[in-house]
Design a protein around this nucleic acid. Sequence first.
DNA 1: CGAATATTTCTGTAAAAACAGAAATTAATG
DNA 2: CATTAATTTCTGTTTTTACAGAAATATTCG
Lengths: 178, 178
Amino acid sequence: MELKPISERFILHWGEMGSRWGVNRTVAQIHALLYLAGRPMEAEEIASTLGVARSNVSTSIKELQSWKLVRTVHLKGDRRDHFETSTDVWELFKLIVEGRRQREIDPTIAVLNGFLSNPDLAAEDEGAQQRIRETLEFIQILTTWSDEMLRLKPETLMKMLGIGAKLSQTFRKGSSSE
Amino acid sequence: MELKPISERFILHWGEMGSRWGVNRTVAQIHALLYLAGRPMEAEEIASTLGVARSNVSTSIKELQSWKLVRTVHLKGDRRDHFETSTDVWELFKLIVEGRRQREIDPTIAVLNGFLSNPDLAAEDEGAQQRIRETLEFIQILTTWSDEMLRLKPETLMKMLGIGAKLSQTFRKGSSSE
DNA sequence: CGAATATTTCTGTAAAAACAGAAATTAATG
DNA sequence: CATTAATTTCTGTTTTTACAGAAATATTCG
């Protein structure tokens, strides 16, 4: 598939963004491609469109699937796997936040809890102890927030925060989960 | 300065977390050290405590200063620079979000706006055009949310979201910005 | 102003991550 | 059940990032 100029630049930018947030560039690019394509694509087509090795696509798709961002579908009369992603930005965002939480936040909470129940903690300065406790508490508050927020539709959340009035008309028309 | 076991593990874990989020490990470690220390430290002491080169500290401190996470202070009778960070997790979080926004989100918004005002956009599939518009809109909503939220104290936000009742007593006692 | 101390920048090396291509495995079809 | 197609895993290379140590610069003090 031949990429049109804007799509290509979108995908490249997305890959760049991924790098800055600890996401493999190719993984981010593939996701952006599937997102813009809005239809299932097979591995070879993804590879040739992005100019990366077939094996690289395989690995990256596996990664995207582990985030539940990509699912495999089959087209009739074609034995190859085809891959697609959601076109709902809010849904995608929720999946990414959920994945990050499971992989990074929850383990950190476990580590910090481990510190607090470790006898060695007493050897630390009082201030340091306090800050470790506050860090854990803060992360727990954050995750509770995010749980609450992700349960809502964006519009509801905006109303709760009283943002609605401040947003221009442009922001609202064509909202993806209306 | 000799690190006590829990502090050392906290700092190492923080460095690890940083890596996963696109932050240089040493940068994250230095910030964690200053956070736990809760007092200004000079570069040589930071270097020896963490076991990294003096030059590495210099570069990393510069990075942390560009995020406004670390400031330079001077102690009387000592001509060396000393560095300290806030011990308020909420304040630190706000600075990090603000920095990420300026460095990554705002430029992305600019890129997407550029696409929407580019005549080449017409050459793209209708669906792709729509998704580019929705992506921009979503990011703008997100930044508006975050602006609103960061203006509040965490307790206020929790009340707004109706979370308070669900949180155990533990979560609330000793909150850092009470 | 010159010596001493502190700090930053530069440069080459080392470590880590990403990746292509080959080889191996798995699945589908006749 | 053998052949072909599709996919995954493995291995070596390339690219990128992180970093130490040296050199250069800046600052402070007598």
